[in-house]
């Protein structure tokens, strides 16, 4: 009889560890995905003669500009005053050498790009690049 009560007190450790590992893997993987949110809905223009970027400066701020003029950073939509605020705080924190990459939809009017560039220039940032899909040559 005594032996039986000892048996019921045992906790099944192995499946518990299995579940915990599952959770750990899930959270680690989903957290890593948060870091590089890329707006895949944009249709970038083709650049035939420029080779693809291999390594990006980790400080780079990527600004996405949609055809309708909507602007977002890491999928978070922003108005121009918000963008100005974000860029100004970036400059305050990291200086004005932070590279800016503009990912613009190829159908977007230059007017929309110009608005963003004006805000970027106003914040004092000058390392500006326009993103395109690298084609063919590498």
């Amino acid at each position: 009889m005594k032996k039986r009560s000892e048996e019921t007190l045992e906790t099944p450790i192995t499946p518990m560890i299995d579940v915990v590992f599952q959770l750990i893997i899930f959270f680690v993987v989903s957290a890593a995905q948060q870091n590089d949110l890329i707006d895949l809905s944009l249709n970038l223009a083709q650049a035939k003669d420029v080779s693809a970027v291999k390594k990006n400066d980790p400080l780079t701020v990527t600004i996405n500009v949609h055809e309708d003029g909507k602007v977002n950073i890491a999928l978070q939509e922003m108005t121009m005053p918000q963008l100005r605020h974000v860029l100004k705080s970036t400059v305050a924190q990291y200086g004005n050498r932070v590279p800016i990459v503009l990912r613009c939809d190829k159908r977007a009017l230059y007017r929309e790009v110009d608005k963003v560039m004006a805000v970027v220039g106003e914040a004092g940032l000058y390392r500006v690049r326009i993103a395109a899909v690298a084609g063919g040559k590498d």
Binding site: A47, V50, A52
Partner: peptide
């Protein structure tokens, strides 16, 4: 399978064209 499906990301070769802006 779950690990590879979750971490898979299609790599799009992107080129960055540098331009100079008018000074502020």
């Amino acid at each position: 399978l779950i690990y590879f499906v979750l971490t898979f990301r299609e790599e799009i070769p992107e080129a960055h064209l540098a331009v100079n802006l008018p000074s502020p």
